[in-house]
Amino acid sequence: MNKPLQNSTSWSDTLKTRKAHLNSLLKTMNAVPGKTSQTEALAIKAIKAEIAHIDSQLNRRK
């Protein structure tokens, strides 16, 4: 049987950290001037969907 780590972070903290990371990626991608390619647009859409999913998970844990 596996023992849980004593200093492991909570799942909520992990989700908050992931959300912060995704938000910083969005800021980086949106900072590029000019038109975005179709691939970049799809990546931005996927990141926003992941952030929405994380928000729903965090709201469910409250």
Rank of each mutant, 00 (worst) to 15 (best):
I44M: 14
V32K: 15
T36W: 01
I44R: 15
Q38S: 10
D13N: 13
T36Y: 05
T39G: 09
K35D: 09
T9I: 10
N59D: 14
H53T: 08
M29S: 08
R18W: 05
K62N: 13
K27Y: 10
K27T: 02
A41Q: 15
A52F: 05
H53G: 12
E40P: 00
K3I: 14
K27L: 14
L5E: 07
N30G: 06
K62M: 09
L58C: 03
A46G: 07
D13I: 01
L26M: 14
L58I: 13
L25H: 02
N23T: 00
Q57A: 07
T28P: 02
T36V: 09
Q6D: 09
T17R: 14
M1V: 06
L5R: 08
N2Q: 12
Q6A: 10
K45D: 11
Q38G: 04
R18I: 03
A31W: 07
A41V: 01
N30T: 13
I44K: 15
K62Y: 04
E40N: 12
L22W: 06
K16L: 12
K16Y: 01
R60H: 11
G34S: 03
I54L: 08
G34F: 02
A20H: 03
L42G: 02
V32Y: 09
L15G: 01
L26R: 09
A49Y: 10
S56K: 15
L25R: 14
I44G: 03
T28F: 10
L26Q: 06
E50F: 08
A20I: 01
Q57T: 07
S37H: 00
E50L: 01
N23P: 01
N2A: 13
A46C: 02
M1T: 03
G34V: 04
R60K: 14
A31D: 15
H21Y: 04
L25F: 03
R61E: 12
